[in-house]
Design a protein around this nucleic acid. Structure first.
Lengths: 152, 152
DNA sequence: GTGCTTGCAAACGTTTTGCAGACTC
DNA sequence: GAGTCTGCAAAACGTTTGCAAGCAC
């Protein structure tokens, strides 16, 4: 929104009230949509599409519109609370920024595998050394074939 | 289409006539659209969007429709002549399969950097060893910040 | 002539935008 | 009351599909 999350957040990430405080501090308003969206979003590390998030929020607030979800997701990403990832050709998925990690996604069966942190680290080190590029592996999944589909 | 490109193609990749021959061998017809599209596509290693390719073909065959381009691109990918890559949020880009490589793409300025082959290889080795995953790094670019934007 | 290929138009799924009214502060 | 946020509708975007006419073989 208008403020960034301080680096001093706890390792498990900010809570709902922390983020609401940030929103208020930045001149934003605390609405029930925002509170419920944050509860849904920060309550799990799962990747969810905007539509899934809308459904979860609508379970409690049926009037909430998908476009409102998109607008809030965008703000929360600007604040650094969330990140989104593209898996294959489907919709983007959203997750808390804390604990974000890289993924392999199978082009055949769409299975996802978390990339081991040491692999991410060596890729990031190599990228920095060779071209000065700072890798942020969370944003795009890396395609290929999972062990099962590669055998077939 | 209905046939796969033999592994014996030259290192610089098949020429227009080679691919047309394959199409014919698979029961397909040789149309002027296909010939021009292949000339445009195989004449350079650049990444081009379907729309750019359509414009290039239309310079010579003004009647060609974008959906025809998409249909032909799909067939050429099935034959293994082409691959497509997703950079950021925009449209997919297409390029000859020969010489395909991984890319870093800057989330800020959209610059792209070719990933050094040895980095790709070590990522692929690590993926295979840790999870049996066979990486195909061409399909998705890896996000981050280029050297210039990372400094800012 | 058979049947693959094309142009066109229309639909698709995801995401964005313009607007007037509703709400938070 | 000022200014932010929302629901709704509509558009934007890249891509896919159905169909009848057209073309390669």
């Amino acid at each position: 929104m208008r403020t960034e999350l301080p680096a001093a957040s706890t390792a498990s990430g900010p809570g709902v009230e922390d983020v609401l405080g940030l929103i208020r501090a930045g001149g934003g308003r605390i609405t029930s949509t925002r509170r419920v969206l944050l509860e849904v979003l920060l309550g799990s590390d799962e990747h969810r599409t905007a539509e899934q998030l809308a459904a979860l929020v609508q379970a409690r607030l049926p009037e909430v519109h998908l476009s409102t979800i998109y607008r809030n997701l965008e703000e929360l990403q600007r604040m650094g609370v969330l990140v989104h990832t593209h898996f294959g050709h489907g919709p983007a998925t959203y997750q808390p920024a804390v604990g974000a990690h890289g993924h392999f996604v199978c082009d055949v069966c769409a299975a996802t595998v978390e990339i081991p942190p040491e692999l991410v680290a060596s890729l990031a080190d190599g990228a920095l050394a060779s071209s000065g590029f700072v890798v942020e592996p969370g944003h795009f999944a890396i395609g290929g074939r999972c062990a099962h589909c590669a055998r077939a």
